[in-house]
């Protein structure tokens, strides 16, 4: 896939007026996230890795954003959302139960653990989760559709789009303090913003 913002690296602004010290520390911590799980068991971890690869597939020409590690961090540190659907258990329990149940569904349908299935088969099971078609005692009454909408999707996609690599892909200006922006209108761009290839504006 062609690069939409060739050469743009939001981290090149690290020592510019666009990044203050708290921002540098936050991004440093994010980039240095431990890759080994603290919360999930080895089985859960393998399933989670496979789920992340399908929810947020990543290019192979760069190191992947370690999405499972960010999900693990949220659970291990107990970073809450501020609300919980009454039909869902607390977030860590929901993830453990959901991953185990997905693996059961994979073994029942294909006699293999989820992480060993082909991407097509993984996608199909995730689609069944999204549409509420997976059920069984291993779900413990947790609606798979709610688990998909309120745990799987936000916990994985938020982690991705909070990462500088994603900001480069979409041309987001990134951190902007204390220097903000000057050129505000349509088709206006400050020199410290990403240049889009093939845009005449």
């Amino acid at each position: 896939m062609a690069d939409r913002y060739p050469g743009y690296d939001v981290q090149s602004k690290r020592w510019s007026q666009s990044w203050n010290e708290p921002t540098r520390q936050v991004i440093d911590r994010r980039l240095a996230i431990p890759r080994e799980p603290r919360f999930f068991s080895p089985d859960e971890w393998r399933t989670l890795q496979a789920v992340c690869d399908r929810i947020m597939p990543q290019p192979t020409d760069r190191p992947p954003v370690p999405l499972p590690a960010f999900v693990d961090q949220k659970m291990a540190d107990g970073l809450l959302d501020g609300y919980r659907y009454a039909a869902l258990p607390p977030q860590g329990d929901a993830w453990r139960r959901g991953l185990a149940a997905l693996d059961v569904a994979a073994r029942q349908a294909h006699c293999d653990p989820f992480h060993d299935l082909t991407p097509d088969r993984q996608d199909d099971l995730l689609r069944q989760m999204q549409t509420g078609e997976l059920a069984g005692p291993e779900w413990g009454g947790m609606p798979c559709k709610l688990f998909f909408e309120h745990r799987v999707i936000p916990d994985i996609t938020h982690a991705y789009y909070a990462h500088p690599v994603a900001w480069n892909e979409i041309g987001f200006g990134g951190p902007a303090s204390p220097r903000g922006y000057v050129r505000m209108g349509l088709d206006r761009r400050d020199p410290w913003e990403a240049v889009e290839a093939n845009h005449a504006g």
Binding site: P22, G174, P175
Partner: peptide, 10 residues
């Protein structure tokens, strides 16, 4: 001035 990062998650 000291506690706020330019970052959605933080």
């Amino acid at each position: 001035l000291e506690d706020f990062a330019s970052d959605e998650r933080e």
